[in-house]
Each structure stands twice: as structure tokens, then as C-alpha cells.
Nucleic acid binder design. Sequence first.
DNA 1: TAGATTGTTAATCGATTAACAATC
DNA 2: TAGATTGTTAATCGATTAACAATC
Lengths: 215, 215
Amino acid sequence: MNRDYADVSMAVIRRLPKYHRYLKDLLDKEIYRISSRELSRMIGFTASQIRQDLNCFGGFGQQGYGYNVEELYNEISKILGLHKSYTTVIIGAGNLGQAIANYPSFMKYGFKLLGLFDVNPKLIGMKIRDIDIFDVDALEEYVIKNNVEIGIICTPKEVAQDIADKLTRANVSGIWNFAPIDIKVPGNVTVENVHLSESLFILSYLLNEKEYLNK
Amino acid sequence: MNRDYADVSMAVIRRLPKYHRYLKDLLDKEIYRISSRELSRMIGFTASQIRQDLNCFGGFGQQGYGYNVEELYNEISKILGLHKSYTTVIIGAGNLGQAIANYPSFMKYGFKLLGLFDVNPKLIGMKIRDIDIFDVDALEEYVIKNNVEIGIICTPKEVAQDIADKLTRANVSGIWNFAPIDIKVPGNVTVENVHLSESLFILSYLLNEKEYLNK
DNA sequence: TAGATTGTTAATCGATTAACAATC
DNA sequence: TAGATTGTTAATCGATTAACAATC
């Protein structure tokens, strides 16, 4: 349990939220014990892969028994850092910014939204579920003063890099980026992207896969 | 060029939208020629990987010269199926549904939104940029009648599977799913997921990576 | 032609799967 | 104890990188 997880591969990491979700479902169904084999059937990974994945972080199971759902859920929550809480701001209070602000699992898992920021004078001064929309000019100062840890970029791509620079200067540790651009940040800032159009294009590809065939 | 692309690995496919985006940027900057080496520097994949990737679909380059940006962009557009247009509906006209309805690259690349559907009587009858919000009870009939190809699920997770079943019965070919659940569909329907909370949890993990260390 | 850069094969690296001894 | 299932090593499979001959 006392190991450096920096060497666990991203392939494993990216599966963790899915384990987390399925374990939550099991808990909700009041199932408290699960084998890698049963989990495999539900989640679609091989049992072997599940055991390998979980073992990157410690021996959570018990031979002959399987895994204790609640314990495993709590461990994975901890690995994902969901036992802590985070201060966040959203930049860009348009449709997408508002959607994120209202996203249920956002609140549920300890992400605390302190404010939204926009350039649009019509939006500035309004509130989204009791949270103020501020002028984006005040962003840097606000982030510093309130020790904001995560900046969520929901702006058009043209200004995304500029916002990222401001966030970086104001010492955020992470950026959740929805703008369709690869923003550049120094090594001490972590960026996670949600590129919606890339996902849509993959769907488009898959729908056409069989057709491109004959030129 | 006359090959079955079904055997190209998903790892390659998932990089295509990124090539597409960078090539568009080059075109906008009026750069018409690029080598794998230069592209590598911009995009962050190795030059070797870029050449391998592109060669899965045909020899688009020229020895001693590199790639013609416009030609490559057009080819990748075609591979992604972006030369065609698609009819779509959005189910769930809340914040997220509305955000998607207004998403710029959505319109730009041939995805035609025919209607939104919701259960909320306050929303039914309203319009989002001239597009009607209908009662979700009318979904199945509407999809059949208008030959809708893609259903976009922006509902809470509780009803997502039911909506997916309706879409499947109404013969959509693809589903773009934003609900935090793995929906089940028959093999002839393609699903592409956007699991926002999974992405957020990864960010959370990365922020904590160094801390979990000492239990 | 000489220089540059692709297309493509071979080598390496990493991730997944299989197998089974350890053990609850 | 016997049965079940993990933890973990070894084998396989796939993806990335390196290298270079082909060729523009």
C-alpha cells in the first residue's frame, strides 16, 4: 500500500472510474461481495485484467472469497482522490458552462463550484443555482484570493489558451478543458480534456466504416 | 485505397480527429505542405507513428516532399465520414442537451439536428435556435418517420436505457450517449460514449497521484 | 543528380491474457 | 478439509518506435 503510483500505466488509470461506477451500482443493489469473474461479466473486462488492475494498488481481495464491494469502492474512491474536496471555477457561462455547473455528479463527489466567469455583460451579475457569474477580468485575482484548485474551461477555442495562461499564473493545479484545442501549460499543471467533436467524429467514422471501402 | 478499414485498430482511429483538427489549423494558416516530422513536433505523436497511421488508409504522402495538407485533410475528412450529412435528434433538452444543440462544430460538420425531446411540459413546445422541443412520447414515431440516423442521449441515467431501446426500435444507426451508464444495444447499432464524470475523476486522480503514496 | 522524406519491414516495448501456486 | 478465488508469474498479443530502402 505504500507505493508510488506514478508508475501505474494510464491504461489502468482510465479504467478506474468504470470500476468505481459499477461498484457503486452494486452497493446500491445491496450486493456486498463480488468475484473478479462476476465483475468481468458485468463490466466487460476480463477477470484476469480486473485482478491485474486492482493489484497495481494493493491486494484488496481475498482468496476463495473475492472482493468486499464496500471496501473496494472506498479504496478506489481514495485512489481517485474522491475522498477530498476541490474548489473550482468555470470560465465561460454559456450553455456548456451552465450544463457543467448543474451536472449532478459534479457536486456529489466533492467538486465545489465557487463561481463562473464570462465576458458577456448580460450574463455577468446573474446566478446559476446561487453561484455568481463574474466578469472574466476578475478571474486571476479571484482564483488567487480563493485558492481555486481547478479551472474548467468552457470558452470558445480562440480564448482558451489565454484563459489557461491566466489560470496557470493564478496557481491552479488542474484544468478541465472543454475547448477544442490542446492548451499548453507548465509541467506542474495537470490538464484533462473533453473533446466533444473528437468523440462525435469517431461515431461518424464507425457509422461509415463499411462504406469507405469502395473508395 | 480499396481496402476494408474494419481491421484498422481503434488506437489509430481515435487519433484521426486530432490529425483532422491540426490539418484544419494548418489550412487556416495557409500552410499547404507538411512533413511527418513537422507534424510530429506540433501534434506530439512520433513521426514514425504518424506515417504508420496514415498508411493504414493509403499512401497520401510523397517521398522527398511530405504531405499535401489540403489533400490529407480531405482524405481524413472522408475517412471520418464528414463529407456526408447526418440527421440527428437530442433526447433531454436540459442544460446539456441545449449545449450540444448549440455546439458550433456540431452544425459545421454536417450533423443536422431535427428536434429535441423532453418530458418536461415547460420545455415542450419551446424552440432552441428554431428547432422544436417535442414530447418524448412522440420520439419513436418521429425517428421512424424522419429517418433519423443518430440519437443523442442527454437524459438522466435512469431513463437512458429506455431511450436507447426506443431509438433502436426506431432504427437509428448510432447513439451518442452522455448519460453515465453503459447502454446495451444490438450489434447493428453503434454507441459512442462521453462520460463526463470519468474524465473529471481522472483529473482528480492525477492531482492526487503523488499524495496517495503514504496511504 | 542530390537531398529529403515517405512507405514499410523489423525490433522493441507495453499491455492483455492465461495459468497456477498460494491461501482464505 | 475441500472448494473457490485471489495474487502473481509467464506467455501472448498488439501497438509503438527504429531503421532504411524506395522514390520523388
